[in-house]
Amino acid sequence: MGIFQNKKFRSAADSNTIAAKYRVKLARHPFLLFGLPFIATMVAGSFFLTPATAIRYEKYDRRVRRLSKEEELGIGKGGRKVDMKEEYYACWDTDANHDGQKLAAKDLDDWEQKRVKRLPGEHDGVI
């Protein structure tokens, strides 16, 4: 049984092309013909992409910037006026309770403590 050769068959027509000549020279000088152009491309790309990255961050900085105290105080001028008493009583005047009664601030003083029935087998916490 014969042994297969490591070399690939290349026809005579393929041996005269630029790619074939480059392939032969690449086998002799791999760093010079592959590594050096690759490193040069990476370094050049870094220099060319630096301004593009700077533009990106400058655009972000224009959008998000610190506000001065005057600007900060003027932000909410278009909103409604807030009255703390009105907000406090509005939260108690909701229909949130289940039996339909409306709560008021005076109802907080008039309450009764009721004991909740326990499930069977549950102890009262008294030892």
Rank of each mutant, 00 (worst) to 15 (best):
N16Y: 13
N16P: 03
N16F: 12
T17N: 03
T17V: 02
T17W: 05
I18T: 13
A19K: 11
A19C: 06
A19Y: 08
K21G: 11
Y22H: 15
Y22E: 00
R23L: 05
L26F: 14
A27E: 13
R28T: 11
R28P: 02
H29Q: 14
H29A: 08
L32V: 08
L33R: 11
F34E: 00
F34M: 00
F34G: 00
G35P: 01
L36T: 08
L36P: 02
P37H: 03
F38G: 08
A40G: 10
A40E: 05
M42A: 10
V43T: 04
V43D: 03
S46P: 03
F47N: 06
F48D: 03
L49Q: 07
L49H: 07
A54K: 15
R56K: 14
Y57T: 07
Y57I: 01
Y57E: 10
Y60H: 09
Y60K: 12
Y60F: 14
R62N: 10
R62Q: 09
R63V: 00
V64T: 11
R65G: 03
R65I: 01
R66L: 09
L67Q: 10
S68P: 02
S68R: 05
K69R: 15
E70Y: 12
E72D: 10
E72N: 12
E72Q: 11
E72F: 13
G74Q: 08
G76I: 04
K77M: 09
G78C: 06
G78I: 05
R80W: 13
R80H: 14
K81D: 14
V82D: 06
D83S: 15
M84G: 07
K85C: 08
E86H: 13
E87Y: 14
E87Q: 14
Y89H: 08
Y89L: 00
Y89W: 05
A90Q: 15
C91H: 15
W92L: 06
A96W: 09
A96T: 10
N97Y: 08
H98S: 13
D99N: 15
G100V: 03
K102I: 06
K102Q: 12
K102W: 06
L103K: 07
L103D: 07
L103E: 02
L103C: 04
A104R: 15
D107A: 04
W111C: 00
K114N: 03
R115Y: 12
R115D: 12
V116S: 05
K117W: 06
K117Q: 12
L119A: 14
G121R: 03
G121S: 05
H123V: 00
D124V: 01
